[in-house]
Structure formats: C-alpha cells, structure tokens
Amino acid sequence: MSTSVSQAKVLICDDSMMIRKKMRMLLENYGITNIYEAKDGKDAVEKFAEVMPDITFMDIVMPEMSGVEALKAIKATTPKANIVMATSIGTEGNLTEAIKYGASDFLQKPVEEERLVKLLDHYFKEV
C-alpha cells in the first residue's frame, strides 16, 4: 500500500458501540488517525462510498444488512477495496463465502492487538 499510516483512512463497521470503541483505540495505538465508523451493513456501504477508506473492518452479524452482503455491495463498485472480516462467527461457511466475495483477510473476535498489528503491518509495510 502506498498510503502511509498517518494518512490512511480506516472504516470500522460493527453494530456494537463497545467494539467500535475498542477497535478505534487499537487503531489509534498503531498511529492511525483517520478513523470512520458504521453501525450496520447499510451504513457501511454508504460510509465506504463517502470515505473511500484504505482498509475496512467488517463485522458479519449486523442489522439492516449483514457484513457479507455489505462486502458484496462494496466489492461490486470498488473491486480493489481492502475488506477484513472481523467476527466471532468465523465458521467455515462464512469464511468461504467472504473469500468468494473478495474479503482480503479475517480477524477473529475478540480482536487481539498482536494479531491486528501483524495484519496492519502486512498492509502498510508491503509496498
């Protein structure tokens, strides 16, 4: 990725206020400052189009529209979008479906800082 950490835009899509708050803290610890939030799948699609984030973290179980549906919708308009599924419901079926629709990675909830850092390093250090 050519964007630097300080300039990167990251979108957190999760219906839980607590998860959004915790993720925001972890991302800030990493040095990311442009953080955006969406509270359901529909909101995620809208915010994505508005912000055009470099990385999107997407929960699966959400009201209005599921994370997998939102992934499909975003990928249809922006095939290059980097979308990481962040969920506790990482069943084989869900993961296979998410990969099929173009998810770039998977993060098991509860999100461990070490794992998140590794994932972000992968995006920012691999030019």
């Binding site: 219906d15 839980s16 607590m18 998860i19 179980v61 959400m62 009201p63 969920t87 506790s88 419901i89 990482g90 069943t91 084989e92 079926g93 869900n94 909830k109 509860p110």
Partner: peptide
C-alpha cells in the same frame, strides 16, 4: 449483547467444526 454475540459466535464455530452444521445468528 456483544458478550452474547461473542459466545454464540464461538458456539457456531464449534458446531460447524464438530458436526458440520452451519448455524446462523441474527442481530
């Protein structure tokens, strides 16, 4: 409710791994 979602999520993963049943969770 996020604790409930987490515990239920891990349950569905286990069930999917052990008996191959793909359960779904509602919000």
């Amino acid at each position: 409710s996020e604790f409930l979602n987490l515990s239920n999520g891990l349950f569905t993963v286990n069930v999917s791994n052990s008996v191959g049943k793909e359960l779904k969770l509602s919000p």
